[in-house]
């Protein structure tokens, strides 16, 4: 079972490596969106410090949205998805593998890049640490929940905009706890509660969300 998931992950990573430009574009989108904010609101350090957690997290949500339509679309086009549907392993496992791969390609780089961008916002060291940690914990939830939307809008016209319409409201708890953790540290409180709730959401995103995703994929391929 684990070997099967690992095989899916390895395959998706290989495919992503073949199309590195997609990954890099999503990352640059993240960087650009974050950099726009100081230009819009002004460079006062205190203002930027208060804005930083929200801005970085919202930009991370948007960057994730950008990479989601790809999650199943390529597999649908070349027929792999149908093969996976017929495979003896449950489809949910396949989705878990794909979600993990998506996180490795999208969420992980975002989390690693975030502290550098946090410096632009004059975040103190412990704020940067919590920011990275919260993104590391929270982005799997984004990948997992996003997979539901990606499966529902598979092969539907105008799927890109529709996807954000469906998924962004479901991202709100992740945003609240993720940005809240950084905020808590900035105001001198502990961020443990936020981070553990974020962890719960991430577990839900990786282990529960794949089942509705699998159902949605079956519906899409009927």
């Amino acid at each position: 079972m684990i070997a099967f998931v690992r095989a899916i992950v390895a395959r998706d990573l290989r495919l992503a490596m073949r199309r590195r430009s997609d990954v890099v574009s999503a990352l640059f989108f993240f960087i650009i969106v974050v950099s726009l904010f100081p230009l819009g609101v002004g460079p006062q350090p205190e203002l930027l410090r208060t804005l930083a957690p929200g801005v970085l997290w919202v930009a991370a949500l948007l960057a994730t949205m950008l990479s989601l339509p790809r999650l199943f679309a390529d597999d649908l086009r070349d027929g792999t998805l149908e093969q996976l549907l017929l495979a003896p392993q449950p489809l949910g496992l396949t989705v878990i593998g794909k979600v993990v791969a998506h996180w490795l390609v999208c969420g992980l780089p975002l989390a690693l890049l975030a502290p550098v961008l946090g410096l632009q916002f004059d975040l103190p060291a412990d704020g940067l640490k919590t920011l990275t940690l919260s993104l590391l914990i929270g982005t799997p939830a984004l990948s997992g929940i996003g997979a539901i939307g990606a499966a529902l809008t598979l092969g539907v016209r105008g799927s890109g905009v529709l996807l954000s319409l469906l998924v962004l409201p479901l991202y709100i708890p992740v945003l609240i706890f993720g940005a809240g953790a950084v905020d808590a540290v900035a105001t001198g409180m502990a961020s443990d509660a936020h981070l553990s709730l974020l962890g719960a959401l991430a577990l839900g995103g990786v282990f529960f969300a794949p089942w509705p995703t699998a159902a949605a994929l079956r519906i899409a391929l009927e």
Binding site: I148, L152, V156, L162, L166, A215, A216, I219, E222
Partner: peptide, 19 residues
């Protein structure tokens, strides 16, 4: 929005039900 984006009513039913 999801409903109205899918033309086949059966698929629209099922997809929006999951949502």
């Amino acid at each position: 929005a999801l409903r109205s984006a899918i033309d086949d009513p059966r698929r629209a039913d099922n997809a929006s039900a999951v949502l």
